[in-house]
Design a protein around this nucleic acid. Structure first.
Lengths: 137, 137
DNA sequence: GAAAATAGGGTTAAAATAATCCTATTTAAT
DNA sequence: ATTAAATAGGATTATTTTAACCCTATTTTC
């Protein structure tokens, strides 16, 4: 349930890594993979997802690499999750709506959606900046 | 990431179903599976997990079935998640602590644990009672 | 004793996740 | 121009997780 995918973990770790390296500093995937201890190729995929979402900026070519696309105050955990895993689809009711006999009285979808929004709101209210700060007490 | 497992969904749906049937009313897995549209055998496993956690009470034998083990005000979404999927282990840093060269300066585990606790707290503060109420506005 | 229910071990099937492979493109340096 | 180092990304394979299924035992009512 509360399990985060490894790709998300890669993405979050990469973002916090870039954040500690300072805004604007370009870092290669190789450096990150070596330092952090992840698979370079898989981390590369995560970075590509972060780039598409504008969370990271890529610089191609020899002196290339990645840097943060915006301030850590403007990157939320939800941003990273969605960039990497897409919008979550929590509700997977076993019965399709049009063949569900109790659909009108069944609020299962509502409950699941409520839950989803709660989690989503929580992650959306957690910026990288606050996450970093909460640690270094 | 934010994806809930089907077994958790089964469990939550079963709990809300039992809740709407009224406290103390014993319902068979077959009835629930038919009404809700889930696999009877798999739902059965979910119920067994809920029973072990005290969320449901089982009655064996011919007139048997399940009923809620305690009031909906005393069952949280976290209870159900843990009963069904066990305690989550969010952090899966690619490097083992004793072979991690940057361990002392790496706060990744802290970030992940912080996140985990935030989600856990959210789910632990969401009771079935409130979930049911929030819908019927 | 028969029937209807939970209990639960064990195996198989399906799906999702993670890893790998390979090639293309971009760009700095020589 | 050529080379080397980097990102971009499609495609495939391997692994792991999840879901489904099978089968037997136990409990309890009638």
């Amino acid at each position: 349930m509360l399990q985060v995918s490894r790709k998300f973990e890669y993405g979050l770790h990469a973002v916090t890594y870039l954040a500690t390296k300072g805004f604007g500093r370009v870092v290669t995937v190789k450096e990150m993979a070596d330092e952090i201890g992840y698979s370079q190729e898989f981390l590369s995929k995560a970075m590509q997802s972060l780039k598409r979402a504008g969370i990271a900026i890529s610089v191609q070519g020899v002196k290339g690499g990645y840097t943060l696309g915006r301030a850590t105050t403007d990157i939320t955990v939800a941003d990273i999750a969605i960039a990497i895993e897409g919008k979550p689809h929590l509700v997977r009711c076993g019965v399709k709506a049009d063949s569900c006999e109790i659909f009108s009285s069944c609020h299962h979808r509502d409950y699941m959606n409520t839950l989803q929004h709660k989690i989503q709101d929580l992650l959306a209210s957690t910026t990288i900046h606050t996450l970093l700060q909460e640690i270094e007490q």
